[in-house]
Simulated scan of single mutants.
Amino acid sequence: MNTFKKSALNAAILGTALFGSAAIAAEKIAVVNVQGVFQSLPQAAMIQENIRAEFKDQIEEAQRLEKDMKYYLEKQQRDAATMSEKERKELEEKLISLRNDFAAKAQPLQNNMQRRGAEERNKLLGKIKDSIDAIAAKDKYDLVLNAEAVLFLKDESKDISKQIIDQVSKSN
């Protein structure tokens, strides 16, 4: 009787394992390299250009201030021996003023550029997500995984990254 219980239990476990494997095999799975898709898109390359164009005047102002600071620092080093105390003090005040102006403009500019860049990247990632959803629905995938989380992929046809790049590239 004891042997019968063990055999029945083993048969039940084996049947459950086989059924579970069959259920997993029946799922349709795809992978997408989201980071690779993002970097391959022409829109991603344009994000940085658009941000620079949007903040062009502020960038030029910060660069001008930086150039002026460099000029006055070089002048201070070059002419220090021949400057009067009054000229030295005026030059130091000028440098302090330029540094303050630069700090007041550069840090907010950098923050604004990073914020806008993140906004644009998130918009593009949203388009990628929408494209993944559309292709997964059209091709009836049960599961789509990020390729960076997949250690092994036997069938490269399950990688739909190229389809995503094509679809997102066309939508602009």
Rank of each mutant, 00 (worst) to 15 (best):
A149P: 07
A11R: 15
E93A: 11
A30L: 01
V37P: 00
L151V: 13
K138E: 15
R78N: 14
N33D: 14
E66G: 13
A147W: 01
G36I: 00
F152C: 05
S84L: 03
N112R: 04
M83W: 10
A11K: 10
N146H: 01
E49H: 04
E120P: 05
N2R: 04
K154D: 05
F55T: 05
E54D: 07
A17E: 08
A11V: 09
F102V: 07
D130Q: 05
Q43K: 01
L73A: 09
L109W: 00
R116A: 05
I164M: 03
S7T: 12
K158R: 08
R78L: 13
E60T: 14
I132P: 07
M113W: 07
M113V: 14
Q35P: 10
K170I: 12
D68Q: 12
F19D: 05
I160Y: 01
I160G: 01
F55K: 00
K123N: 11
F19H: 03
S40C: 03
E93I: 08
E156R: 06
L143R: 00
R78E: 15
D68C: 06
G36D: 00
E85Q: 05
A106N: 13
L109P: 04
S21T: 08
I128Y: 02
I128Q: 00
I59N: 01
K56Y: 06
K123E: 09
Q114T: 08
Q110P: 10
R88D: 13
K129Q: 11
R52T: 15
S161W: 02
K86D: 15
A80D: 14
E54T: 09
K94V: 06
R64S: 13
L143F: 02
L125S: 02
A12W: 04
I135K: 01
Q114H: 03
L151Q: 06
K70V: 14
Q58M: 06
D142S: 02
I128G: 02
L73N: 13
V144H: 03
A118T: 09
E90P: 10
E87H: 01
E90R: 08
V34S: 09
D133T: 09
I13K: 06
R88A: 15
Q110T: 11
N10M: 15
R121P: 02
Y141A: 06
D68F: 03
R99V: 13
R115C: 03
L143M: 06
E120D: 03
M69G: 11
I165N: 00
K162N: 08
D142G: 00
L14C: 14
G20A: 15
D133R: 04
A12T: 06
A26F: 03
M83Y: 04
R115D: 11
Q39K: 09
L145G: 00
K70P: 14
K70G: 13
E66D: 11
G20C: 15
A44Q: 09
L109F: 01
A30E: 08
L65G: 08
M113Q: 08
A45Q: 11
A53T: 11
